[in-house]
Write a protein that binds this DNA or RNA. Structure first.
Lengths: 196, 196
DNA sequence: GTTTTTACATACCAGTGGTATGTGGTGGGT
DNA sequence: ACCCACCACATACCACTGGTATGTAAAAAC
């Protein structure tokens, strides 16, 4: 068998992540077997376990990729909006990006559904993993600094607003007749507007 | 081996559900094996698969028990409060019960964490399973009927408020210093108060 | 040019959820 | 009172799972 150089190894690793990303999204973590992923990439289990010590670690890598993608996009949107408009609108812009990700199938299945079950209760918060929480909390803390919301409510509001956006994402993905993007935006603005 | 009567069979079934409830809570669905549950009850796999066609069905039964428990308690609290106070306070009382369940370890691990991963995206909504959603939506619809919130926002608010309570439950269970029950109640009331 | 390390492949393992079949006690029909 | 179908399990077995131990050829390091 032809052995490969480090450059090819990097490509193999990316192929594994890509295949895992697709299968985790389509079939879920539990119904995706390591053999299936290997067959998709065209290698054997030995190679997979050379790159990732466990199935969970492969999932964690996929999970992190999605979180980072959401994080960078939300940061960019918030910074951009903060320059053009008021801080309150900048916060809404960041929430809009998060809401967009929360309607994506891959983000839903991997980050919002399988993530908590696979990574567990402890790993979910204690580490610096959860970029979504950090992002929302930073946005609200900025609002507090501007005097728009009360400082003492920042943490509590952060967890509730982030979760609310998650739920809204799920609802939007269902395409229920009375839960439209407009209705979500309207209700969300009404909720956070009351905080001022 | 001594074979048992129908009455003993009912007890066996309840024992299975009880053992599953405990192990699903403590170790999670994935790390709980059917053999472990059987050993806990003192029977073999043949008996378990006689009562439940699959591991998923056993989980669904446990999941339903918790949902029903929450539902009945929330309904009772809302009806009781509705008689004594105004509809807005009655709604808050119902939310309080839901929030209490959302801080319980068993409800968190089984209903909120493993539930979505095991039961899947479709089974989560399309059936009449999700009593939590129904409950919150009914409460908000009642507020709309009283003219407290706008009718067009009912569905959107329901999914967001329910999710917000979920997130609040998780945050409370973490015992983080700045996310206390008082802070949650304060922030939550501030959010929904703005809807009027 | 030799040695070490990398990037895989191969073979194997205990344990998993699930099935097929066996079996003794129970309860209803006559 | 007897019989027999059925119920509530037990036993044995299966394909497959994630994970490990080992082998091996090519690439990199010296």
């Amino acid at each position: 068998m032809a052995k490969r150089s480090k450059l090819d190894a990097k490509k193999t690793r990316e192929d594994l992540i890509g295949a895992a990303m697709r299968q985790f999204e389509q079939q879920g973590y539990a119904d995706t077997s390591i053999n299936d992923i290997c067959k998709d990439v065209g290698i054997t289990k030995g190679a997979l376990f050379h790159h990732f010590p466990t199935k969970r670690d492969l999932f964690l890598e996929v999970w992190t990729r999605l979180q980072v993608a959401m994080d960078t996009e939300a940061r960019a949107a918030a910074i951009e909006a903060r320059r053009l408009t008021d801080p309150y609108s900048a916060f809404l812009a960041g929430c809009g990006v998060y809401l967009k990700f929360a309607t994506r199938r891959d983000y839903q299945k991997i980050v919002l559904i399988d993530g908590p079950a696979i990574l567990g209760l402890q790993g979910w918060y204690e580490s610096d993993h959860d970029l979504g929480t950090q992002n929302v909390e930073a946005g609200i803390r900025y609002l507090a600094k501007k005097g728009i919301v009360e400082e003492s409510r920042v943490s509590a509001l952060a967890v509730m607003i982030q979760s609310a956006l998650n739920g809204a994402g799920f609802a939007l993905a269902r395409h229920q007749s009375d839960v439209t993007p407009d209705a979500i935006y309207d209700a969300f603005e009404a909720m956070v507007k009351g905080l001022r």
